[in-house]
Design a protein around this nucleic acid. Sequence first.
DNA 1: ACACGAGTTTGGTACAATCAAATTGGAAAC
DNA 2: GTTTCCAATTTGATTGTACCAAACTCGTGT
Lengths: 234, 234
Amino acid sequence: MAIPDNQGGKRAADVIVTALEARITSGELENDKPLPPERDLMEEFGTSRTVVREAISSLANRGLIELRPRFRPIVRKPDYGTLLSATGTIVRYLLNEPGGVQNLYQSRVFIERGLVRDAALNATKENISDLKAALLANEKALDHSEEFFRTDIAFHGVLYRIGNNPIFPAMHEGFTSWLSPNWARMTRSDDHNRSVYLDHKAIYDAILERDPARAEEALIAHLSAAWSYVEETF
Amino acid sequence: MAIPDNQGGKRAADVIVTALEARITSGELENDKPLPPERDLMEEFGTSRTVVREAISSLANRGLIELRPRFRPIVRKPDYGTLLSATGTIVRYLLNEPGGVQNLYQSRVFIERGLVRDAALNATKENISDLKAALLANEKALDHSEEFFRTDIAFHGVLYRIGNNPIFPAMHEGFTSWLSPNWARMTRSDDHNRSVYLDHKAIYDAILERDPARAEEALIAHLSAAWSYVEETF
DNA sequence: ACACGAGTTTGGTACAATCAAATTGGAAAC
DNA sequence: GTTTCCAATTTGATTGTACCAAACTCGTGT
């Protein structure tokens, strides 16, 4: 079965969904602006409000519309971040299945291994200075548990931005938002923070010296250590 | 903005969504079985049918329920494939934006580079025999354009299955279903098929000899060649 | 020029009714 | 006894109307 999605089924709502979808992606319905009122749409499409409403709900679930409780629906042109919110529910469910967290974490390690290798091989001066800045921020926050957590994530985030491909930062957001709940419980002692920082530094150094193998090793050591913490919480 | 999803908003429909979501994931509502009738649900939750309907629609969009036009809604425990259909619309839109196809293709190359490296390092005897079988099938289909295309995809698919992580095959499905439309137009001459086959064989050989660097090189050469075809069609 | 408040717009929910397709169950046929 | 086939019923899809409360508008008064 290769993506059935929608076939012959011609629910009235689907017609509206398709039409609005086109208007949003074509720009006829401007980004960040409110959708026409339900009552107008119902008149335009010659259907009942129920149907219009269902269509809107559908678009909201697909991330093309932002739906706040009592407010006008707001048009949102999709970006790679939209994919995250659209998949959030499913992912969260999958994570609760046996091995779910491990599978996702393993994927993250896989990705970042490739990223640090590439960084070691192709990082520009600017990339490296970004990385250095992130590392410094990380060091400065050594004593501030809260801030350290943020800079930790930010450091990894730089790696995802090196390739200049918007898909990767989106993946980073996904990894952090889906996996960090499993981190939340883990004690963030100063000792631990220092060890994390040193890992980051090792990765940075290897990249600086253009040594992909060592960069990959350092990353694996880093993320394996983190994983052992996660494992304990189960 | 880190995944707002739903906040304070307490729409009545959301209550039902949450409840049914729990019943589905807990198994109280069995997989592949129809949902209770809307009228029963409306009585149970003490709401109008409108709300029940909206909730069902929402669950359908999230992939937890399959909704065929006039049939009973069917419960579907999500798997990693569900993510694909849930994101299909958005991805297809993103691909039409400038650089969209290239970004996705680049991600695919990135992933497969890691996969072949890992394969060269860690593939079990069974993995390798799977790969060999796929390669043979690919060779046999050299003269059958249709079949060759399938075995081409299958060969790459083996790589995604080596890690034993269900996320990767799902990614493969995504790549093929989202990118192959761009392949469709490209001429599949016998000459071209042979060149593709030889690329596959080079990758296989490198993996067999446990040489990750050569495997990666072979893969890059292979996918770069394919990309040049895609580029021409723009 | 600014704050305020009444009136209007709009989304959220409810209820009742109709239609057409799907499902079921029992009668008829083999 | 098993199968076939046609009602009767179930159920999803859609319509229309109505009401409420929150958001929004706009004009008034300070």
